[in-house]
């Protein structure tokens, strides 16, 4: 089988489109990890609930897009805050494994809630991105992929700017480095925890809206989270830059493998990469390597 060059280019571009969404979700994961050191296994399900909330506003209530998106983000922030306050904070002093398992429980709860309200059937989100396909050189890119890439890129640019320069972003990084020290210089540490979960839920919801508008929504769309774990582990759990680069890479890889080997090889490829990274460089490409002490 001759593989045409244009095919490779188009597949790559589509892959980078998906990859940008993985990167965005990965950033949501990293925000939580940086601030609270919690590995949130439910990130895919938080993305899913965001997509369904958006469905509720834009399809069920038929609100216009300019109202549905902010409403969805706001509701998601509240959900994130509630999760942090009721499930995560009571356990933060315990060992990290307990909190991790709580997020596993959360996965199950969120899937149940979505199926209870909207049933397990796949649905389509209302069309809101321009439908004109984008053509770069000779390569054809579906419009949704192209626009979701742009939106994701813009969102990440905003987030990175905020984290680098805004006071709250610095507070978050300070908390990440040393809780006790942050607290002693007057940073409201519990506030930072709540804020990080709210922000992450918002970012995940945005990613959910985009993922859903490209591929439709269903109670199983949290599986997207599986690829996101691979992204954050490859990139390094606490590195936003790592999530970005690894996101694009994994998205590209899945697209190429899916196109040229077959869809069933996608997860196999990503998880094989994951195993290799775990064994060779467990703290990821850009993550902080913590020296073990007695």
């Amino acid at each position: 089988m001759a593989i045409e060059f244009i095919d490779i280019v188009e597949t790559s571009l589509a892959g980078l489109g998906t990859g940008s969404l993985m990167a965005l979700t990965g950033v949501a994961f990293v925000i939580i990890y940086k601030a609270t050191k919690v590995i949130n296994l439910a990130i895919g399900e938080m993305l899913m609930i965001g997509a369904f909330v958006f469905y509720g506003f834009s399809a069920s209530l038929a609100l216009p897009i300019w109202a549905s998106v902010p409403l969805t983000l706001a509701v998601s922030a509240v959900i994130g805050g509630v999760i942090e306050r009721t499930m995560i904070r009571p356990l933060l002093k315990d060992n990290p494994v307990s909190v991790f398992m709580v997020t596993i429980g959360l996965t199950s709860v969120l899937i149940g809630v979505v199926e209870l309200i909207w049933s397990a059937e796949p649905r389509r989100l209302p069309e809101f991105l321009p439908s004109q396909p984008v053509i770069i050189a000779d390569a054809f890119i579906p419009s949704k992929t192209a626009y979701s890439f742009l939106i994701a890129a813009a969102a990440m640019a905003v987030l990175i700017t905020v984290f680098s320069f805004w006071r709250g972003g610095i507070a978050l990084r300070a908390t990440a480095t040393d809780r006790a020290a942050a607290s002693s210089v007057g940073i409201d540490v519990p506030g930072v925890f709540s804020f990080s979960w709210m922000l992450a839920a918002t970012v995940a919801a945005l990613a959910g809206i985009l993922v859903g508008s490209v591929g439709g929504i269903s109670s199983a769309m949290g599986l997207f989270g599986l690829s996101v774990f691979v992204v954050v582990i490859v990139g390094g759990l606490d590195s936003i830059l790592g999530a970005l680069i690894a996101g694009l890479f994994i998205g590209w890889l899945e697209a190429m493998v899916g196109r040229f080997l077959g869809g069933e090889f996608k997860l196999l490829a990503t998880f094989s990469i994951l195993l290799v990274v775990l064994v060779v460089r467990p703290y990821g490409l850009f993550g902080t390597h913590e020296i073990e002490r007695l």
Binding site: G105, T107, S108, V109, L110, I111, G112, V113, E115, L116
Partner: peptide, 8 residues
């Protein structure tokens, strides 16, 4: 769904 919620 209720079973999933209860498990979680």
């Amino acid at each position: 769904p209720v079973r999933n919620i209860i498990f979680g």
